[in-house]
Design a protein around this nucleic acid. Structure first.
Length: 159
DNA sequence: GCCAACGTTGGC
DNA sequence: GCCAACGTTGGC
């Protein structure tokens, strides 16, 4: 698979928002709870420390790309899969053979002006973006260089 | 709150 | 290995 340098990761702000990330130590956190194989494989196989990531607020008002992060660790087992009290607990996963991994992410910039999903849909050169494809539910998605730059332009930010 | 589109599970 | 049933995601 082609090596991507740019990604998009979704989070419901009621669960974890970009403001929550901003309050974490070093503005860094572990991206727990990914329980989809395709998304896991992106983290496990394709992400590199220093890759850039859009932070997207899903199930929210407004739906928008709200800022950027960078990958801050190699992939490692998601501790919540072993925790019976966690909603992400997976009884079929073992310490010897963990099913789920995560990566650390560090905040780069919260956009002063979030880029709305509606604005992305209205931008012709972003019509291929996975985020707005019908039925696209993947919570971690690759992003092209053009998409990375265009969204920054729309946000009034420098890539 | 609805429900379409997907992903996963498990019986066969 | 197929596929029906079920569960989840996430925009609307």
């Amino acid at each position: 698979m082609a090596k991507n340098k740019y990604w998009l990761m979704k989070s419901e702000p009621d669960e974890f928002s970009i403001d929550d990330l901003a309050t974490r130590k070093n503005q860094t956190t572990y991206w727990e709870g990914i329980r989809n194989y395709q998304a896991r494989n992106f983290m496990r196989d394709d992400m590199k420390v220093g890759d850039r990531v859009f932070f997207y607020h899903s199930n929210a008002k407004p739906l928008a790309i709200v800022g950027t992060m960078e990958i801050a660790s190699e992939p490692y087992p998601d501790p919540s899969q072993f925790d019976p009290d966690s909603k992400y607990f997976d009884e079929k996963s073992t310490e010897d053979n963990p099913r789920w991994v995560l990566v650390d992410v560090k905040l780069i910039k919260k956009f002063d002006k979030p880029v709305l999903r509606d604005d992305i849909k209205n931008e012709p050169t972003l019509s291929d973006m996975m985020l707005i494809k019908k039925g696209s539910r993947l919570s971690i998605q690759p992003v092209t260089e053009h998409e990375w730059k265009k969204v920054h332009e729309m946000a009034g930010e420098k890539p």
